[in-house]
Amino acid sequence: EAKQAFKELLKEKRVPSNASWEQAMKMIINDPRYSALAKLSEKKQAFNAY
């Protein structure tokens, strides 16, 4: 599932759970899995759940 892949990406890149969305994006934007969720709102939702 795309959300699961996105959460795994956050874990693998060691994005701190208290990081802001902007900080997290800088760490993950170059990974192909960043595109797993098409909409930015879906990415933010998955990030907030993380």
Rank of each mutant, 00 (worst) to 15 (best):
P16C: 04
S20W: 01
Q4D: 00
K26M: 09
K11S: 12
R14W: 01
K13C: 02
V15C: 04
M25C: 13
M25W: 04
A46G: 03
S41N: 06
W21V: 07
E8N: 05
M27G: 05
A46T: 07
E8I: 05
K39E: 13
E22K: 14
A2V: 03
I28P: 10
A19E: 02
K44G: 05
S17I: 13
Y50P: 09
F6S: 08
L40I: 09
L37Q: 07
A19K: 04
A5K: 15
Q23E: 12
M27Y: 10
I28N: 02
E12N: 08
K43H: 04
P32Y: 00
E1A: 03
K39N: 04
A46H: 02
L37D: 10
S20P: 07
L40A: 11
N30E: 12
N48Q: 11
A46S: 08
I28L: 08
A38V: 11
A24M: 04
Y34I: 00
L37G: 07
I28K: 08
A38K: 14
I29L: 11
L40N: 09
Q23G: 06
K7R: 11
A19H: 04
I29D: 13
A49D: 15
W21Q: 09
E42P: 01
R14C: 11
L9E: 05
L37E: 08
E22N: 08
F6Q: 06
R14N: 11
Q45V: 07
K44E: 10
N30F: 05
E8K: 05
M27V: 09
R14T: 04
Q23N: 08
A49E: 15
W21H: 03
K39I: 04
F6H: 00
Q23H: 13
P32G: 08
A2W: 03
K3V: 13
K43S: 04
S35W: 13
D31A: 01
M25P: 08
A36D: 07
I29V: 15
A24T: 08
Q45R: 12
I28F: 01
P16N: 01
A36I: 05
S35L: 12
L40G: 06
A24H: 00
R14Q: 14
Y50H: 01
F6P: 02
S20M: 03
N18V: 05
S20C: 07
L9H: 03
E42C: 03
A46W: 06
A24V: 06
S20Q: 08
A46I: 11
A19M: 08
Q45C: 12
K7S: 13
N48S: 10
A2T: 02
M27C: 04
Q23K: 08
A24F: 02
L37W: 01
N18H: 11
S41V: 06
L9K: 04
L9T: 04
K44Y: 04
K26T: 13
A24R: 04
A46M: 12
E8P: 00
E42Y: 00
S17K: 14
N48V: 02
N18L: 02
A2K: 12
A36N: 11
N48A: 10
L10D: 03
Q45M: 09
F47G: 06
K3M: 15
K43F: 09
I28C: 13
K44L: 13
L10G: 03
K7G: 13
A46F: 02
S35A: 14
F47Q: 07
A24Q: 10
A49Q: 15
P16G: 04
Y34F: 06
A38M: 08
M27F: 07
Q23P: 05
K3H: 14
L10A: 04
K11R: 14
L40Y: 11
W21M: 05
K13V: 04
A24L: 00
L37P: 10
N18Y: 06
P32I: 05
S41T: 10
K39M: 09
E12Q: 06
L10M: 08
L40F: 09
Y34D: 08
R14A: 12
I29N: 15
F6I: 04
S35M: 14
Y34E: 07
E12K: 01
M25S: 13
A36F: 10
N48H: 10
I29R: 14
N30W: 08
K26I: 07
Q4E: 14
S41P: 08
R14D: 12
S17E: 14
F6T: 04
Y34G: 04
Q23A: 10
S41Q: 10
S35I: 07
A2E: 14
K3D: 10
A49K: 10
P16H: 02
P32N: 06
A5S: 11
S35K: 12
K13W: 04
Q45S: 13
P32Q: 12
K3R: 12
F47S: 04
P16Y: 01
K7A: 12
A5M: 12
S41L: 02
D31G: 01
Q4A: 11
L10C: 06
N30Y: 10
S35F: 13
Q4F: 00
S17R: 15
N18K: 05
Y34V: 02
N18C: 10
S17G: 11
A24S: 05
A46E: 12
Y34P: 04
S20T: 15
E12I: 00
V15A: 00
E12Y: 02
A19S: 08
S20A: 05
E22S: 10
M27H: 11
